[in-house]
Amino acid sequence: MAKSQFYLIGPGAVGKVLARRLQKSGWTCVGVCGRGSAAGRRVAKELDAPYVTSLKEVRLSQGILLLSVGTGQISSVARELAAIPLNWPRISVLHNSGTLDTKPLAPLEMLGAAVGACHPFMTFPRFGSTVRSGSKEDDYDPAFPLVFGIDGNVKGLAACRKVTKACNGVAVEVRGKDRIAYHAAAVLACTLLGANIAMALDILRKIGISEKQAKTAVMAIAQETLANFSEYGIDRSWTGPAVRGDTRTIKAHAAAIRKLNPGTAKVYKLLSDWVMKQKG
């Protein structure tokens, strides 16, 4: 049986994590294409793969072509790749976008390639441009299992499942019409969760609590809440005035927050109303 191999286009936050997991599973990386950054070159060196900066230089005889580029770049990258005379019927092209289906990969599907959307439902921080090689940030790999939202043609779905298994993940089919809502759920659980934490920190700082103490307090209650949700379920472990229907306290909270940050007060009231409606 031929050894599984892949080519990585886009050695960024998502691409390098997936590439490392594939390599640990015994896959071979046969090449990396990036923008020429030092970080991208380090990823290629780590994977023991040649590094190129032009899509015209991509070479893959068979296997997985992993497009870990920005959502807005997928269509143009696919069109440029379609001009390269590769043996496309032996190649599976998978992008990592959470919102897109496989329509942007149509030029490659027309050439016989298997196409798929293979999005890890997980956070991949970029940590800024000053990450040092070998640092904790550079070696980042999520501690929790990866759930992949997959879509594609028959062979593309099979390739998605193969990648998911190699990455020790779980595959869930999310078809085109549902992918935007699916990705919105990820944003609610990640980006907007972070927004709530940032607002809580801002309130504590503005009433005179130190940055260190505020961070300790907020992260402790946030992590304990998530642990309880996971262990006991949300309905059994939700607490607070909105859960109790305590509108007097909610109004007092909103008034106090409004003096510190009117925008945060609006968010607080909106979320409290949502919780009360769910519990009602």
Score class of each variant (00 low, 15 high):
2 A>S: 15
2 A>C: 01
9 I>D: 02
9 I>T: 04
11 P>H: 08
13 A>Y: 01
14 V>S: 00
21 R>P: 06
23 Q>V: 14
24 K>M: 11
24 K>F: 07
25 S>G: 03
25 S>I: 05
26 G>F: 04
27 W>T: 03
28 T>E: 12
29 C>N: 06
30 V>M: 10
33 C>H: 08
36 G>T: 07
46 E>D: 14
49 A>K: 11
51 Y>T: 11
52 V>A: 14
54 S>H: 13
54 S>K: 09
57 E>M: 11
57 E>V: 00
61 S>V: 14
63 G>N: 09
65 L>P: 03
66 L>K: 14
66 L>F: 13
67 L>K: 03
73 Q>L: 11
73 Q>Y: 11
74 I>D: 01
78 A>Y: 08
80 E>S: 13
82 A>W: 05
91 I>D: 02
94 L>N: 03
95 H>A: 07
100 L>F: 12
103 K>I: 02
104 P>D: 06
105 L>K: 09
112 G>L: 01
115 V>T: 12
115 V>W: 01
120 P>E: 04
123 T>G: 06
124 F>T: 05
124 F>P: 08
127 F>S: 06
136 K>N: 06
145 P>T: 01
148 F>R: 01
150 I>N: 10
150 I>W: 08
156 G>W: 10
157 L>C: 09
158 A>K: 12
168 N>S: 15
171 A>P: 02
173 E>N: 10
174 V>N: 07
184 A>V: 15
191 T>S: 13
193 L>K: 00
196 N>Y: 00
196 N>A: 12
198 A>P: 03
198 A>H: 05
206 K>C: 04
207 I>V: 13
208 G>V: 07
208 G>H: 03
211 E>M: 10
211 E>H: 13
214 A>H: 03
219 M>G: 04
225 T>D: 05
226 L>A: 10
228 N>S: 09
229 F>P: 03
231 E>F: 08
231 E>I: 08
231 E>H: 15
234 I>G: 01
241 P>A: 11
242 A>L: 03
244 R>W: 14
246 D>P: 00
247 T>C: 00
249 T>H: 00
253 H>F: 08
257 I>D: 10
260 L>G: 09
262 P>F: 11
262 P>C: 13
265 A>R: 11
267 V>G: 08
268 Y>A: 08
276 M>G: 12
277 K>H: 13
279 K>R: 15
279 K>L: 06
280 G>S: 05
